[in-house]
Design a protein around this nucleic acid. Structure first.
Length: 677
DNA sequence: GTTAGGG
DNA sequence: CCCTAAC
């Protein structure tokens, strides 16, 4: 069956060169203090890096909780890196596939009834989006999920949260033999080790992204976009990355509506024959995005670039060095991809449409000359890094790296997905006055210092802070108070829940040891000091959450107390090990003690969980290996489970007998005793 | 709050 | 994992 084969592709994993060796090794040896310079780094890696940073210098004893202070804040920069560009890239082979296959990665809400067969789950969950499809393919046709760095367990974990599929021009793509051929070619390419970055990796990044947003894509896209804004543009945007597309559309600015951008410069195209028709540009992208996604992009764009909000203007950008850089990059034979070109051409910058693309590699802020600019001066802003609000995590030694990753990811997700404030930093100093105009502040035309402008994302902890934000002042993003749904409580979303209830992964906001689902603690106070001068901060989250939720998000009803099922977190082997060991020692009737002994610091494992797990372990141990699912538990452990279970069952039986005897004893002898007394 | 089991 | 009766 085709499906099965694809399953293999997806889950047995072809090594997907998600990033060049140079970048990879650079990351490996990256010190915590070193900025992570890797624009290919997906969220997953990113967050893992955060974890590494956070854990540095911590007491690693399992029980001690980790405290985090300001100095633990991590600045993560995902910028374009030179090595990236230097790396030889052959993308030529990929072009036809890119062009021919789906144009959009279909991200859907989590709908995975079958824990143990994620592929089927994919299929099931994507049934609507994909129609008849047993089509679970990358949009580049490579099929399946890139599994680099993802263990089986993690893979499954993500699989549960993400639904992916390939959609061709907004419609489900039917996987046919031609696709199969393409896919094979891509796989071959991947296996050859010469695949360009991005090949088959779409899913990978999509997965990362998706996970970050906890499988709430359409809500999160907005947030994501904001976050993504903080990543410097990559030189080679994932050709099929929806987010990239959204972002790129945004980057195209808001001119497309009022100006029939004459920008379709028919520049000579020597790149490759696969290039799409030149003039499609923006329009094509729009089409590609499919209506509702486009809507998302547009709305978001409106939010960010609306003239009402702010005049982003100036072009104080150093064009010379800019073009120099750009030129130097042309040395790379296959640098430009189709997708890339699209943007170039859609840019209405008539004179140098090619170079106009180069704003992708600009630094934190840059403006650019455009024909329409004089009429409506804008500042084009690019954020290259953001600061992850402090957080601390607590995780037992027995936890796996994978669980660490998840933990950190969830912690960060909680923050990113939650209330975030945007801080503006200029010349290294936080801009504290919202009332000034950009020009007054220095964010303008004349300021071409690359590092002049910066942004930070910070926990938008309380209503107080929010209300402290001057509403009337210009801001990059402003809340749309007229939004129809504004009557809904903005903050609490499902995504948020189930994350903040992971006490194991918490931020510094004081919401730590909540182990109950639904008890999402909203960030409170604290962090205020650090943000004392944060008048410039602007609440972003609720806005995007609300305005961009094309797909209706199930909101918590009136009392916001609709309990949500906790996220499923399969026990790792290490956890099983710990559990077995504890039960061997304590028996099967003292789950609280087991919890305290082996999972004390793991807040999301309740003693009930442990009890349940033991139950399933016993069951697992009794069935044949073929019937077992999930991450295989070593037989040795299962044997111990059976042994321990037998032993303690017997003990329990004995105890009960004793009790019975005692009771009988009492019945018979108590009268006597009384008599004696 | 814990245990023990069914769902 | 959830739900809950029964401690």
């Amino acid at each position: 069956m085709v499906l099965n084969r694809r399953l293999e592709y997806g889950f047995n994993g072809y090594q997907v060169p998600a990033m060049p060796r140079a970048a990879r090794s650079a990351r490996r040896r990256g010190s915590p203090n070193k900025k992570v310079e890797d624009n290919n780094m997906c969220a997953f890696d990113l967050l893992a890096t955060v974890a590494g940073k956070l854990l540095v210098g911590k007491d690693s004893s399992p029980s001690s909780s980790n405290l985090s202070t300001k100095q633990d804040q991590c600045a993560i920069t995902v910028g374009n890196i030179k090595e990236e560009f230097q790396a030889p890239q052959k993308q030529l082979e990929l072009q036809p596939y890119d062009q021919g296959s789906g144009d959009m990665i279909c991200l859907g809400p989590k709908l995975v009834p079958d824990y143990h067969n994620p592929v089927n789950s994919f299929k099931e969950a994507n049934k609507d989006a994909l129609g008849c499809a047993d089509t679970i393919v990358n949009s580049d046709g490579s099929g399946g999920l890139a599994s680099e760095k993802l263990g089986k367990d993690e893979m499954r974990y993500f699989a549960e949260k993400v639904t992916l599929g390939s959609v061709e021009h907004g419609k489900p793509s039917n996987y046919n033999s031609e696709d199969e051929t393409k896919r094979k070619n891509v796989v071959e390419l991947l296996n050859s080790g010469n695949a360009p970055h991005g090949t088959g990796a779409n899913m990978y990044s999509a997965i990362g992204d998706q996970v970050v947003w906890d499988a709430k894509p359409l809500v999160q896209i907005s947030s994501y976009s904001n976050a993504k804004m903080s990543f410097k543009e990559t030189e080679e945007p994932g050709p099929r990355n929806l987010f990239s597309q959204v972002r790129d559309n945004v980057a195209l600015d808001s001119k497309d509506d009022d100006e029939n951008s004459s920008g379709c410069t028919h520049r000579s195209t020597t790149k490759n024959s696969f290039k799409p028709a030149p003039c499609m540009g923006d329009r094509r992208i729009r089409k590609v995005l499919a209506s509702k996604y486009w809507k998302v992009a547009t709305k978001w764009k409106e939010k960010l670039f609306s003239r009402n909000d702010v005049d982003l203007k100036a072009d104080g950008f150093d064009k010379k060095s800019f073009y120099k850089r750009q030129r130097s990059q042309r040395n790379f034979p296959f640098k430009k991809r189709k997708f890339f070109d699209l943007n170039c051409e859609s840019n209405s910058d008539g004179e140098i449409s090619g170079d106009s693309c180069a704003d992708r590699e600009m630094s934190s802020v840059a403006g650019q000359h455009s024909p329409y600019q004089s009429a409506n001066p804008h500042v084009r802003v690019r954020i290259e890094s953001f600061r992850v609000p402090e957080l601390f995590i607590e995780i037992p030694e027995t936890a796996t790296v994978g669980s660490l990753k998840r933990t950190v990811m969830e912690a960060v997700t909680a923050i990113l997905g939650g209330e975030l404030r945007v801080g503006v930093v200029l010349q290294g100093k936080k801009v504290g006055d919202d009332s000034k105009t950009l020009a007054q502040t220095g964010i303008c035309h004349g300021n071409n210092q690359v590092d002049a402008l910066g942004f930070t994302l910070e926990p938008n902890s309380s209503q107080d802070l929010r209300s402290a934000t001057p509403r009337s002042s210009p801001s990059l993003v402003r809340r749309n108070t007229s939004y129809p749904h504004s009557r809904y409580p903005p903050a609490r979303t499902e995504a948020r829940e189930g994350i903040f209830d992971e006490p194991q992964a918490v931020n510094n906001l004081g919401n730590s040891a909540e182990s109950d689902r639904g008890s999402a603690t909203s960030p409170t106070d604290l962090s205020n000091k650090g943000l004392a001068d944060s008048k410039a901060l602007v609440p972003v989250s609720a806005l995007n959450r609300e305005t961009l939720a094309v797909v209706p998000v199930r909101r918590k009803s009136k009392h916001s107390e609709i309990a949500q099922r906790r996220i499923r977190r399969p026990f790792s082997v290490a956890e099983v090990e710990a559990l077995v060991q504890a039960v061997e020692k304590l028996g099967t009737g003292r789950w609280r003690d087991v919890k305290l002994r082996a999972f004390d610091s793991v807040k999301h494992r309740t003693y009930v969980d442990l009890k349940d797990k033991w139950k399933t372990l016993v069951h697992t141990a009794r069935i044949s290996p073929q019937q077992r699912r999930g991450e295989p538990v070593p037989q040795e452990l299962l044997d111990r489970v059976l042994t321990a279970h037998a032993y303690w069952s017997q003990q329990q039986a004995k105890q009960q007998l004793k009790h019975h005897h005692r009771r009988h004893h009492h019945h018979h002898h108590q009268p006597e005793t009384r008599l004696l007394l």
